[in-house]
Simulated scan of single mutants.
Amino acid sequence: MNGSLRFSPNVVDMKLKRGPAGLGFNIVGGVDQPYVDNDSGIFVSKIKEDGAAALDGRLEEGDKILAINGVQLEDLTHGAAVDHFRTAGEDVELLVLKKFPLHMNGPSDSQPDHQSSAFSLGMLAALAGAAVLFSFIFTRHIRKHF
């Protein structure tokens, strides 16, 4: 792990106290089960309601967990990462990279979607044109009957 990453504004150091239901979140990823394209890291897949993570409020689905109790999770299998979480003890320190927009599997193109904006404007123009046409026909029809 890059040492300068710890000081990134998107990296958060948080401490959780294990509750009756554990830490209160599920993880995915690992070198044997990559969750994100070209990244074999460990990611939060679900925050359990009323669990330790939900009560703390900082951990979110999609966040990448870089380390637990100082142990880096880089280049581990999913099972090895799960073992680290299971044996972490009651007080757990996590180093977390907060999720980025479009960080999860999905379109790999990071360009904004201008096509949907153009489509919306086109639909708006078509509806406005239809309204004008309807008004024109309606007023001509009314004039004929009076």
Results as ranks from 00 to 15, higher is better:
112 P>I: 08
105 N>T: 13
85 F>D: 03
94 L>Q: 02
109 D>S: 09
64 K>W: 02
110 S>Q: 08
81 A>T: 12
55 L>Y: 00
97 L>F: 06
92 V>D: 00
32 D>V: 07
50 D>H: 07
86 R>F: 00
58 R>W: 03
84 H>E: 10
87 T>Q: 13
81 A>F: 00
75 D>I: 02
96 V>G: 02
42 I>T: 14
77 T>H: 08
45 S>L: 01
52 A>V: 07
92 V>R: 07
33 Q>W: 05
46 K>I: 08
86 R>V: 05
82 V>S: 05
50 D>L: 01
39 D>P: 04
32 D>C: 03
66 L>S: 03
41 G>N: 11
75 D>T: 09
104 M>W: 04
84 H>L: 13
86 R>W: 00
41 G>W: 05
110 S>A: 00
69 N>W: 01
46 K>Y: 03
37 D>L: 13
99 K>G: 05
56 D>P: 00
71 V>K: 14
40 S>C: 12
99 K>S: 11
74 E>F: 06
54 A>V: 09
37 D>I: 15
112 P>A: 05
83 D>G: 09
79 G>Q: 12
32 D>H: 09
56 D>Q: 11
40 S>N: 13
112 P>D: 04
107 P>A: 02
52 A>K: 03
64 K>Y: 00
48 K>Y: 02
104 M>L: 13
51 G>R: 07
41 G>H: 08
81 A>Y: 01
112 P>V: 05
44 V>I: 15
110 S>E: 01
91 D>G: 08
99 K>L: 01
73 L>H: 08
109 D>M: 01
46 K>Q: 15
76 L>N: 06
103 H>V: 09
110 S>P: 07
94 L>A: 01
48 K>C: 00
67 A>N: 08
68 I>T: 10
74 E>H: 13
53 A>F: 03
109 D>A: 01
56 D>E: 15
69 N>G: 06
49 E>I: 10
76 L>K: 14
99 K>Y: 00
66 L>G: 05
49 E>L: 10
47 I>Y: 03
58 R>K: 14
91 D>K: 15
78 H>C: 11
85 F>R: 07
100 F>S: 14
70 G>W: 07
85 F>L: 15
104 M>Y: 01
53 A>K: 03
51 G>Q: 09
57 G>E: 12
92 V>H: 08
73 L>M: 13
81 A>R: 09
97 L>A: 13
48 K>Q: 10
34 P>N: 11
39 D>I: 08
62 G>W: 03
96 V>P: 03
57 G>P: 14
46 K>L: 12
44 V>N: 11
72 Q>M: 09
72 Q>Y: 10
79 G>H: 10
78 H>K: 05
70 G>K: 07
77 T>F: 02
66 L>T: 05
81 A>D: 07
54 A>N: 12
73 L>P: 02
79 G>T: 15
88 A>M: 06
47 I>P: 13
74 E>R: 15
40 S>P: 05
54 A>Q: 12
91 D>I: 15
63 D>E: 01
107 P>M: 02
87 T>K: 12
34 P>F: 04
108 S>C: 01
96 V>N: 01
70 G>R: 08
75 D>S: 14
102 L>G: 03
43 F>E: 11
111 Q>H: 09
60 E>C: 10
41 G>T: 09
96 V>T: 07
63 D>Q: 10
69 N>M: 04
89 G>P: 08
103 H>Y: 12
93 E>I: 12
86 R>Y: 00
60 E>H: 13
